[in-house]
């Protein structure tokens, strides 16, 4: 398969670049690693996030603002019906009173319940593990919202205007975190991760869970991390450390 060859080629180039130790070429190497526009995504990759709760500050909402700006989720000042793709959770242990904080968003499960229940197949998982809504076939039944264990989905309750060209959204369909597919396809990291690293505390890491050499895979191997509601066996693509 061409996808396979391309993915291999990209790894090769990455290796070569590391050996050559290019200076100003680095930016270009990243470019070269990007999937070409014609290339379809492949299951050789599985994109995911690693979130270190110990670095995530209670009052910091950089990831949330980053997401809201990227996708123009400005809302109508009606918190019950406005969409939220990512939100900050503050946790207090009932026994020990230990307080921690973390962002909650679509967990991009390997076996997503939203995909199981969707009658039209509009909820789907892309080959590279990103769980999405095909808003062209979503009929707005909201069964997926009921089925999501993470409360990660929102229904668009009113007409929208001024959407971003790369993030179409509209009334009557369900939506959730897209892991910023439009950015991932250009080899950029999701807006929340970028915001966390530039304006927040660097608690979020994005990468390919299938690539043993990726930073995220190494981190996950080195230190324990957990899935939220691991009892459900969904194999989430978003993992947490130090909750």
């Amino acid at each position: 398969m061409t996808a396979e060859i391309n993915a291999k080629r990209r790894r090769l180039i990455k290796g070569a670049a590391a050996v050559a130790g290019l200076g100003s070429g680095l930016q270009l190497v990243e470019l070269a690693l990007a999937k070409s526009d014609e290339e379809a995504v492949s299951a050789l990759q599985r994109w995911g996030l690693l979130i270190d709760s110990s670095k995530c500050a209670t009052n910091c909402t950089a990831c949330v603002s980053g997401c809201n700006e990227e996708h123009n989720l400005e809302g109508f000042d009606r918190p019950e019906t406005d969409a939220q793709w990512i939100r900050k959770l503050d946790l207090t242990d009932q026994q020990t009173q230990h307080v921690s904080s973390l962002p909650m968003l679509c967990q991009h499960c390997e076996n997503p319940p939203c995909v199981d229940v969707c009658p039209t197949g509009a909820s789907f998982k892309r080959d590279d593990g990103i769980v999405l809504v095909d808003k062209h076939t979503c009929i707005g039944c909201r069964y997926c919202v009921i089925a999501c264990p993470y409360k990660a989905r929102s229904f668009v309750h009113e007409s929208l205007h001024n959407q971003k060209s790369y993030s179409p959204r509209g009334k009557g369909t369900v939506e959730s975190c897209t892991l910023c597919v439009h950015r991932v396809d250009k080899d950029l990291s999701p807006a929340c991760v970028e915001a966390c690293n530039t304006k927040g505390n660097g608690a979020m890491m994005f990468g390919d869970l299938n690539d043993a050499d990726s930073e995220i895979a190494k981190q996950m191997k080195a230190a324990p991390s957990r899935q939220v509601r691991e009892d459900l066996g969904l194999n989430t693509g978003v993992r947490y450390q130090n909750i």
Binding site: D116, V117, C118, T120, T137, I139, G140, K171
Partner: peptide
């Protein structure tokens, strides 16, 4: 009550057979 009732035709042409909703249709 659907968000997009005009897409009823989609519900009749696209099926996800794992969905209980689809069985129910």
């Amino acid at each position: 009550d659907l968000g997009r009732p005009e897409r009823l035709i989609v519900a009749m042409t696209h099926y996800n057979f794992k969905s209980i909703f689809a069985w129910n249709i």
